[in-house]
C-alpha cells in the first residue's frame, strides 16, 4: 500500500556533491523518495545518474552533502545496507555459479532466513524457476538480468535502486520487470529507477527527474507529467531523447 505522502522520506539525497579528480559528477543534487514512491531519473550519458545511485547504495562517499536511507547517513553501519536492493546494468553475478547459487549467496549475505528457499522463491518470481540450476554463463543476457533482479529482491528490500534495469531484457522480460517493480512499489518499497528510456521510466514513476551535468534540472510529480509532452520537455532540457 502507498504510504501517506507526508510520511518521512526513506531515501534522501541532501545537496550531494561528488567529484572525480577535476570532473564534477554531482553538483548539489537533492531529492527525497518516500515509501511507495518511485523516482525515475532521466538524463544523458555522463549526467551523473549512476553516481547518484552508487552514492545512495553506499558504494561512493559524497564529496559534500549527505545520502540517507531511513534516516541513517550512508555509508554508515553495514545493517543500513540491508534495506537496499540494487539492480545494475552489470549483472553482479558470478558466471560459474548457477542462478540458484548466486541468489542463495546474496540471501546468505543479507541474512535471509532459509536462504535456499528464499532464492528459489525469488527466481520463480522472475520466471527463472526452470533454469535455476543452470550456470549463469550459459544463460542469455536477458535471463542473467532476471537472475540479477532476483538477487536484488531476495531479501525484500525497502529501497530499490535500479540502474538501467531493462538493459538486455526482451519485451516479455521488460513487461514482467515493470509488473514486478510495480508490485514492490505498491507493497511500500521506495524506488529509484535510472533509465534512458522515457516510456519505461514513466511506466513506474510517481516522480520524474531530469539530471544534466550533475544537477537536477527538472523534478515533477506524476500528476504534473503530461506523458505526451514529457519527451519534448526532456529534449528541451538536455537536447536529445534516447
Amino acid at each position: 500500500m502507498h504510504e501517506p505522502a507526508n510520511s518521512s522520506p526513506v531515501v534522501e539525497a541532501a545537496d550531494l556533491y561528488r567529484s572525480f579528480g577535476r570532473k564534477q559528477a554531482l553538483a548539489g543534487v537533492s531529492f527525497t523518495v518516500r515509501a511507495g514512491e518511485c523516482l525515475a531519473l532521466f538524463g544523458p550519458n555522463g549526467a551523473g545518474k549512476t553516481t547518484v545511485l552508487r552514492t545512495l547504495a553506499g558504494l561512493l562517499r559524497p564529496t559534500r552533502g549527505e545520502a540517507r536511507i531511513s534516516g541513517h547517513v550512508l555509508p554508515g553501519e553495514p545493517s543500513v545496507r540491508a534495506h537496499i536492493g540494487i539492480v545494475s546494468h552489470h549483472s553482479l553475478l558470478y558466471d560459474s555459479l548457477s542462478a540458484r547459487e548466486n541468489v542463495g549467496f546474496a540471501a546468505r549475505l543479507y541474512r535471509v532466513p532459509d536462504p535456499d528457499a528464499a532464492a528459489v522463491r525469488a527466481l520463480e518470481k522472475m520466471g527463472m524457476g526452470v533454469r535455476m540450476n543452470t550456470p549463469v554463463r550459459s544463460l542469455s543476457r536477458g535471463m542473467q538480468q532476471r537472475v540479477s533482479i532476483a538477487r536484488a529482491i531476495v531479501h525484500s528490500p525497502s529501497v530499490i535502486l535500479a540502474d538501467e534495469p531493462y538493459s538486455g531484457l526482451d519485451d516479455e522480460g521488460s513487461r514482467s520487470l515493470t509488473a514486478l517493480l510495480g508490485e514492490l512499489r505498491a507493497a511500500g518499497a521506495a524506488m529509484i529507477v535510472v533509465t534512458h528510456n522515457v516510456a519505461e521510466g514513466l511506466a513506474l514513476a510517481t516522480h520524474a527527474s531530469v539530471l544534466s551535468a550533475g544537477k537536477i534540472v527538472s523534478l515533477l510529480s506524476r500528476d504534473a507529467i503530461d506523458e505526451a509532452a514529457f519527451p519534448a520537455h526532456y529534449r528541451n532540457l538536455v537536447g536529445t531523447v534516447q
Binding site: 547504495a57 537496499i84 540494487i86 552489470h90 549483472s91 558470478y94 549475505l109
Partner: peptide
C-alpha cells in the same frame, strides 16, 4: 579478479557484509 567481470564486487560492498 573473479569479482570484476560483472562488478560482483559492487554486490558484495552494497550488502550488509562488513
Amino acid at each position: 579478479a573473479i569479482e570484476q567481470s560483472e562488478r560482483a564486487i559492487d554486490g558484495l560492498l552494497a550488502s550488509p557484509a562488513s
